[in-house]
Amino acid sequence: MSEIENKAENGSTESAGECTSGDTKDDKGLGLGVIFFIVAFVVCFLSGTLLFPKLLYSKKEQPFNFDHELHVSEAGDCDACHSVREDGSFTGIPKLAVCLDCHAEDPLGETEDEVVFVEEYVNKEKEVPWLVYARQPDCVFFSHAAHTTNTDCKVCHGPIGESNSSRVYEENRLTGYSRDIWGKNIFGIKKHSWDRMKMDDCAECHKKETGHQGYCFQCHK
């Protein structure tokens, strides 16, 4: 048995005074400790909430601004540009050819973005390198065909059709994925169904709508 345990059982028989380091009763030390704790907490809290996201995500601008609201009013609903092909696959962000159905070599509007679009891409016959906010990792399979029949685009993508400008695209420096699919809120608090696109969110909705969260292969490949 150890020495200390002996003491524990026999009651303390020797002076503990010699073992202590402090010489006088020192409440000041305690007070300083509390202050140190509070300061350290505040520093950690602020750097975690303010600094960390800045370090983790790099900000990227779209090639030029895109006015969704304008296009909706001119061209029609989402499926005027984003649609499902005959075999059920999703067209995603339209290719230049789709844009050219309406746009021509002369700018349609008076914005600078339209000029960029026409000069840089239409005239050069180059695809626009859009940054896709909702792009999922490689291992994810998502069937738009299975969802668009009974789910509004807004449920997952938010009211993007009402926006006039393209947001800054934030890319996770470690994974290379868009911040949209992880969620903007650093605490993981979700206010809208479109706040993030994580597996938990898919599973939550599936559980509600189909009674089962789904098996791995339903969404993975």
């Binding site: 150890s2 020495e3 200390i4 345990e5 003491k7 524990a8 503990a16 073992c19 202590t20 380091s21």
Partner: peptide, 20 residues
């Protein structure tokens, strides 16, 4: 319970309490 560690009051008490 190392001779030097046990001289530190906090460690001494900690070891004691943990035994308890």
């Amino acid at each position: 319970e190392n001779r030097q560690a046990n001289k530190v009051s906090f460690f001494h008490h900690l070891a004691h309490n943990m035994h308890g």
